[in-house]
Amino acid sequence: MEKMLCMIVFGALAIASLAQDASAQTVHVVGDNMGWVIPSNGAAAYTNWTDRKTFRVGDTLVFNFMTNQHDVLQVQKSSFDGCNSQNAVGSPILTGPANITLNSTGDHYYICTFGRHCLNGQKLAITVSSSTSTPGANPPTSSAAGPSGSVPGGTDAGPSGSVPGGTAPPPPPSSSTTVLASFMLSLSAIALAAFL
Protein backbone atom coordinates (compact mmCIF):
# COMPACT_ATOMS: atom_id res chain seq x y z
CA MET A 1 0.00 0.00 0.00
CA GLU A 2 2.82 2.40 0.87
CA LYS A 3 4.55 1.63 -2.43
CA MET A 4 1.35 2.37 -4.37
CA LEU A 5 0.91 5.67 -2.55
CA CYS A 6 4.49 6.70 -3.38
CA MET A 7 3.86 5.86 -7.04
CA ILE A 8 0.70 8.00 -7.05
CA VAL A 9 2.49 10.96 -5.47
CA PHE A 10 5.46 10.62 -7.83
CA GLY A 11 3.14 10.36 -10.86
CA ALA A 12 1.19 13.45 -9.81
CA LEU A 13 4.40 15.42 -9.29
CA ALA A 14 5.68 14.36 -12.71
CA ILE A 15 2.42 15.40 -14.41
CA ALA A 16 2.40 18.75 -12.61
CA SER A 17 6.01 19.39 -13.59
CA LEU A 18 5.41 18.53 -17.24
CA ALA A 19 2.28 20.70 -17.38
CA GLN A 20 4.12 23.67 -15.90
CA ASP A 21 7.05 23.29 -18.35
CA ALA A 22 4.77 22.87 -21.35
CA SER A 23 2.62 25.87 -20.46
CA ALA A 24 5.68 28.15 -20.57
CA GLN A 25 6.38 27.35 -24.22
CA THR A 26 4.79 29.31 -27.05
CA VAL A 27 4.57 28.57 -30.75
CA HIS A 28 5.17 31.72 -32.83
CA VAL A 29 4.14 31.51 -36.50
CA VAL A 30 6.53 34.02 -38.06
CA GLY A 31 4.56 36.80 -39.73
CA ASP A 32 1.28 35.18 -38.65
CA ASN A 33 -0.95 34.84 -41.76
CA MET A 34 1.66 36.53 -43.97
CA GLY A 35 4.15 33.71 -43.35
CA TRP A 36 7.84 33.81 -44.31
CA VAL A 37 7.78 35.76 -47.58
CA ILE A 38 9.15 38.96 -49.11
CA PRO A 39 6.90 41.45 -47.30
CA SER A 40 5.24 44.18 -49.34
CA ASN A 41 6.33 46.87 -46.85
CA GLY A 42 9.90 45.58 -46.42
CA ALA A 43 11.56 44.54 -43.16
CA ALA A 44 9.13 46.74 -41.20
CA ALA A 45 6.55 43.94 -41.53
CA TYR A 46 8.64 41.54 -39.43
CA THR A 47 9.80 44.30 -37.07
CA ASN A 48 6.16 45.23 -36.42
CA TRP A 49 5.30 41.56 -35.93
CA THR A 50 8.01 41.13 -33.26
CA ASP A 51 6.87 44.27 -31.40
CA ARG A 52 3.80 42.36 -30.19
CA LYS A 53 5.70 39.23 -29.09
CA THR A 54 7.82 38.01 -26.22
CA PHE A 55 10.27 35.23 -27.08
CA ARG A 56 11.59 32.82 -24.45
CA VAL A 57 13.92 29.83 -24.38
CA GLY A 58 11.83 26.77 -25.23
CA ASP A 59 9.48 28.66 -27.58
CA THR A 60 9.22 27.54 -31.20
CA LEU A 61 9.40 29.71 -34.32
CA VAL A 62 7.46 28.33 -37.29
CA PHE A 63 8.58 29.71 -40.65
CA ASN A 64 5.82 28.94 -43.18
CA PHE A 65 7.18 29.06 -46.73
CA MET A 66 7.05 27.18 -50.00
CA THR A 67 9.94 24.77 -50.57
CA ASN A 68 12.26 25.91 -53.39
CA GLN A 69 10.95 29.49 -53.14
CA HIS A 70 12.46 30.52 -49.80
CA ASP A 71 14.69 29.21 -47.03
CA VAL A 72 15.63 30.28 -43.52
CA LEU A 73 19.13 30.70 -42.15
CA GLN A 74 20.23 31.86 -38.71
CA VAL A 75 23.14 34.29 -38.93
CA GLN A 76 25.20 36.66 -36.80
CA LYS A 77 24.22 40.35 -36.65
CA SER A 78 26.84 41.46 -39.20
CA SER A 79 25.42 39.02 -41.77
CA PHE A 80 21.87 40.05 -40.90
CA ASP A 81 22.74 43.71 -41.48
CA GLY A 82 24.60 42.93 -44.73
CA CYS A 83 22.12 40.28 -45.93
CA ASN A 84 24.75 37.60 -46.46
CA SER A 85 25.37 34.10 -45.15
CA GLN A 86 29.04 34.52 -44.24
CA ASN A 87 28.51 34.14 -40.46
CA ALA A 88 25.84 31.46 -40.46
CA VAL A 89 24.83 29.48 -37.40
CA GLY A 90 24.14 25.98 -38.75
CA SER A 91 22.79 25.16 -42.22
CA PRO A 92 19.97 26.73 -44.21
CA ILE A 93 16.60 25.06 -43.84
CA LEU A 94 15.35 24.53 -47.36
CA THR A 95 12.04 22.73 -46.72
CA GLY A 96 9.03 24.58 -45.41
CA PRO A 97 7.54 24.89 -42.94
CA ALA A 98 10.62 25.10 -40.72
CA ASN A 99 10.25 24.72 -36.96
CA ILE A 100 13.04 26.22 -34.88
CA THR A 101 13.16 25.78 -31.11
CA LEU A 102 14.75 28.74 -29.34
CA ASN A 103 17.41 27.17 -27.14
CA SER A 104 19.46 30.15 -25.98
CA THR A 105 18.94 33.69 -24.73
CA GLY A 106 20.07 36.78 -26.57
CA ASP A 107 19.63 38.24 -30.03
CA HIS A 108 18.73 35.84 -32.85
CA TYR A 109 18.85 36.81 -36.54
CA TYR A 110 17.23 34.98 -39.47
CA ILE A 111 17.35 35.69 -43.20
CA CYS A 112 16.20 34.18 -46.49
CA THR A 113 19.22 33.55 -48.73
CA PHE A 114 17.29 33.31 -52.03
CA GLY A 115 18.20 36.07 -54.50
CA ARG A 116 17.53 39.53 -53.05
CA HIS A 117 14.83 38.33 -50.61
CA CYS A 118 16.72 39.53 -47.53
CA LEU A 119 17.49 42.90 -49.10
CA ASN A 120 13.77 43.24 -49.84
CA GLY A 121 12.88 42.68 -46.17
CA GLN A 122 12.70 38.92 -45.64
CA LYS A 123 14.69 39.01 -42.43
CA LEU A 124 13.79 38.61 -38.77
CA ALA A 125 15.55 39.82 -35.62
CA ILE A 126 14.32 38.77 -32.16
CA THR A 127 15.56 38.89 -28.59
CA VAL A 128 15.09 35.71 -26.58
CA SER A 129 14.85 35.85 -22.80
CA SER A 130 15.08 33.02 -20.31
CA SER A 131 11.95 30.96 -19.83
CA THR A 132 11.58 32.25 -16.26
CA SER A 133 12.02 35.97 -16.91
CA THR A 134 9.32 38.58 -17.01
CA PRO A 135 7.72 39.68 -20.29
CA GLY A 136 9.09 42.65 -22.16
CA ALA A 137 11.86 41.38 -24.41
CA ASN A 138 12.18 43.73 -27.35
CA PRO A 139 13.62 42.81 -30.73
CA PRO A 140 16.95 44.34 -31.67
CA THR A 141 16.79 47.34 -33.92
CA SER A 142 17.62 46.96 -37.58
CA SER A 143 17.43 48.99 -40.72
CA ALA A 144 14.25 48.37 -42.69
CA ALA A 145 15.90 47.90 -46.05
CA GLY A 146 19.34 46.69 -44.93
CA PRO A 147 22.62 47.66 -46.53
CA SER A 148 23.41 46.53 -50.05
CA GLY A 149 25.19 43.24 -50.53
CA SER A 150 24.71 39.87 -52.11
CA VAL A 151 22.88 36.91 -50.67
CA PRO A 152 24.69 33.77 -51.75
CA GLY A 153 22.67 30.55 -51.60
CA GLY A 154 25.64 28.78 -50.06
CA THR A 155 25.76 25.80 -47.79
CA ASP A 156 26.62 27.72 -44.68
CA ALA A 157 25.29 26.59 -41.38
CA GLY A 158 21.67 27.12 -40.06
CA PRO A 159 19.73 27.38 -36.88
CA SER A 160 20.53 24.89 -34.18
CA GLY A 161 17.57 23.03 -32.76
CA SER A 162 15.73 23.22 -36.07
CA VAL A 163 13.55 20.54 -37.54
CA PRO A 164 13.23 20.98 -41.31
CA GLY A 165 9.86 20.25 -42.83
CA GLY A 166 6.93 18.75 -41.01
CA THR A 167 4.10 20.65 -39.47
CA ALA A 168 3.95 23.17 -36.71
CA PRO A 169 4.08 21.67 -33.23
CA PRO A 170 0.81 21.59 -31.31
CA PRO A 171 -0.05 24.67 -29.32
CA PRO A 172 0.88 24.69 -25.65
CA PRO A 173 -1.61 23.10 -23.31
CA SER A 174 -4.47 25.20 -22.10
CA SER A 175 -4.74 26.46 -18.57
CA SER A 176 -7.13 23.55 -17.90
CA THR A 177 -4.13 21.19 -18.24
CA THR A 178 -2.29 23.16 -15.58
CA VAL A 179 -5.39 23.19 -13.37
CA LEU A 180 -5.75 19.41 -13.81
CA ALA A 181 -2.10 18.89 -12.86
CA SER A 182 -2.53 21.09 -9.78
CA PHE A 183 -5.67 19.17 -8.85
CA MET A 184 -3.82 15.84 -9.21
CA LEU A 185 -1.00 17.15 -7.06
CA SER A 186 -3.44 18.32 -4.37
CA LEU A 187 -5.32 15.02 -4.48
CA SER A 188 -2.06 13.11 -4.05
CA ALA A 189 -1.06 15.28 -1.11
CA ILE A 190 -4.45 14.67 0.55
CA ALA A 191 -4.11 10.92 -0.04
CA LEU A 192 -0.61 10.94 1.40
CA ALA A 193 -1.75 12.84 4.49
CA ALA A 194 -4.63 10.39 5.00
CA PHE A 195 -2.32 7.38 4.98
CA LEU A 196 0.35 8.91 7.25
Rank of each mutant, 00 (worst) to 15 (best):
N87K: 14
A125E: 05
D81A: 09
A125V: 11
C6W: 11
P140S: 06
T26Y: 12
V29L: 12
S186K: 02
K77A: 10
N84S: 04
G153Y: 15
A181C: 07
I100Q: 06
N84R: 04
F10T: 13
V30Q: 05
I8Y: 02
Q74A: 11
I93S: 14
I111T: 03
D59V: 06
A194Y: 13
V179R: 12
L13T: 08
V128W: 02
P171N: 12
T50K: 00
L61A: 02
N48A: 14
V163L: 13
P39Q: 04
P171M: 13
C112N: 01
S17P: 00
T54A: 03
L187T: 14
F114V: 13
E2L: 09
N120D: 13
F183H: 00
G146W: 06
H28S: 08
T67D: 05
T134V: 13
G58S: 05
N84C: 04
D156W: 11
N99W: 02
A144S: 14
S17K: 13
E2P: 01
G153T: 07
P170S: 08
S150L: 12
A137K: 03
T127I: 04
S85E: 11
N99T: 12
S182R: 13
A44H: 01
T50E: 10
S148A: 08
Q76H: 08
P170I: 01
T127S: 15
G121S: 09
G154N: 14
K53Q: 15
G149Y: 10
L94V: 09
S160G: 04
V27N: 00
D71T: 07
